[in-house]
Design a protein around this nucleic acid. Structure first.
Lengths: 160, 160
DNA sequence: ATATCTGCAAAGACTTTGCATGAGA
DNA sequence: TCTCATGCAAAGTCTTTGCAGATAT
């Protein structure tokens, strides 16, 4: 892996963010971040737990939850809800439009497609909206989600 | 109340949709729709249950959940998730931009603000995106959500 | 040294399911 | 009449909490 989170470069960047917050850099945390970095997809806590478990079997599910909560709170990880009762997590890879994407959720089978169409235009509108909302409501907006719901190709075909 | 769901007009419109689907028009269902119609806000299942309970005390929470599932499936109700572990429900009031709105969620206290800034522009972009995604992925898109997360005025002040 | 972190087990919160009874068409 | 819907209780899922032992700095 080679992004913001990779092993290479001038030390792991998140180390600084951890230290600044008074958080310790522990093996479970390193492995959880590694798993998030290696997987481009919206993983559930259990998905992450299973992958982490393969690397370091003594790490428990509780630690996964607690670490994710921490990372979400620090703004390093996004938490999504696709309506199936379990949260999904994804590493933030910066604000540039190249990494920006959203989700298309099949309400029938749960399939999720990442998309990034019209991201430039979207970011423009989002930024405008964001500024307006910050001014109007005094909110400090940190992120946003945009999701489309419907039937995927396969489910649509079955229903017809 | 006077909208699409009101008592007035040429009969309750949703009756037709129910009959068409082979669903029965029962007292619990009528009351749940009434409660949704009278409240403009994203209610949790329990919120709805409590209001329904005041009108007709024998209706149970299970029925509320089952009815909401039905209504969401029929596309008459939106289900939202604001990240606090409980789903919220809101009556669909048509696709016109006058009723279209989104949510601003405080990740600290859970406060939710409805907003409708730049809705016209948004719908334009959404429609364009929607068409592109339907063509590209074969999805039949039925709706979308756009949510901003951050700190509300009060929480921002406290944290400073 | 010492405050933070972890794993386990148990608890908690929300939602769904099984089943006999009741009700709409 | 004959399905479909309801209510209760129980079960199911995902997530959080309490606590003693382990760990990072």
């Amino acid at each position: 892996m080679s992004g913001r989170w990779g092993e290479r470069g001038p030390g792991k960047r998140w180390h600084r963010e951890f230290r600044g917050g008074g958080y310790r850099i522990t093996i479970p945390r390193q492995i959880i971040l590694q798993v998030l970095d290696e997987s481009k997809k919206h993983l559930s806590a259990e998905d992450i737990f299973l992958k982490v478990h393969q690397i370091y079997p003594t790490i428990g599910l509780t630690t996964v939850y607690r670490t994710l909560e921490l990372l979400v709170g620090m703004g390093l990880v996004f938490k999504f809800d696709f309506g199936d009762g379990r949260a999904r997590y994804e590493l933030c890879r910066g604000d540039d439009s190249s990494s920006h994407h959203h989700h298309l959720v099949c309400t029938n089978c749960g399939r999720i497609i990442d998309y990034a169409e019209f991201i430039e235009e979207e970011l423009e509108l989002i930024n405008k909206t964001k500024q307006e909302l910050e001014k109007k409501y005094g909110f400090e907006i940190r992120n946003h989600t945009l999701q489309f719901y419907g039937l995927c190709k396969r489910c649509k075909a079955i229903k017809e």
